[in-house]
Amino acid sequence: MRKIISFMHISLDGFVAGPNGEMDWIKVDEEIFDYVGKRIGETNTALYGRVTYQMMEGYWPTAGDEPTASKHDIEHSKWYKEAFKIVLSKTMEEADLTNTKVISENLSDRINEIKQSDAEDEILLFGSPTATHSLIQQNLIDGYWLFVNPVVLGQGIPLFTDIKDKIKLRLLPITRQFNCGVTELNYLVDRG
C-alpha cells in the first residue's frame, strides 16, 4: 500500500507558518534543494491543499523556462509538470486541469483508493497545513518528513492541532543536519 508522507518545514516550537501564513522564516539553500530533489525524484505523485496547489501552479509550470532559472527551478519545474497532482478542495473544479485529480468529498474513501492503487511510490503531501490537519484527523498520513528550522515563532499555524487520539511515531535513522542549521527528521506512523 502506498504511503502519504507529509513534507513540511516546521519551526522548533511546532509551527508550519506564521499567524498570517508567513513562510519567510524557512531556510532553504542549494544543499537542501539538492537533497530534497533526490527524494522527490523517487515519486511522481504530489498531494496539495487548494491554496498550496494554486501557489505551486502559479509558479512551477514555467519556472524552468525563465532565462535566469536556477538548476533547482529547471529540475523541479520538469518534475512538477510530469507529476500526478491530487488536490483537496471543496471549491475547485477538475475540468481543464492537466494530470490533476480534485478530491472534494468522501476524503477517507478517495484517499484510501489512491493509497491502494498499483503504484508503489510515496505520495508526498507538500505543505498544505489545512489539508494536513484534515488528513491527520482521519488517520490518513503514514509519515512525516520534517525540516526543523532553527527559529521559535511563538505563534502561527501549528502542524498538529485538534488531535483526538495519540499518534505513535517511529523515528527513522534517516536524519541530517544542514549547514544552514535546518535538521531533517523522518517519522513513520506506528500503527502496530
Rank of each mutant, 00 (worst) to 15 (best):
N149W: 02
S104G: 15
T43E: 06
H72A: 12
N179W: 05
N179C: 07
P150F: 07
N20V: 07
S6E: 09
I123R: 00
Y144G: 00
V148R: 02
T130W: 08
R110M: 12
V151C: 06
D65R: 13
G154I: 05
I111F: 03
Y80H: 09
G156N: 02
L97I: 11
L47F: 05
E93W: 07
L47R: 00
F178I: 06
D65S: 14
A95F: 12
G37T: 10
N179A: 13
E94Y: 06
T98G: 05
G41L: 09
H9M: 15
M92S: 08
T175P: 03
F147E: 02
M23C: 11
F147L: 14
I136M: 12
F147N: 00
L88D: 00
L97V: 11
A119L: 13
R2T: 04
G127L: 02
M92H: 08
G64L: 06
I163H: 06
T45L: 07
D142P: 02
I26Y: 03
V16F: 02
V182P: 01
E120V: 14
K27N: 12
L185E: 05
T183R: 06
T45D: 04
A69H: 05
Y35D: 14
D29T: 05
E184I: 04
N139V: 07
I4M: 06
V36K: 08
V16S: 01
F84P: 01
D109F: 12
N112G: 06
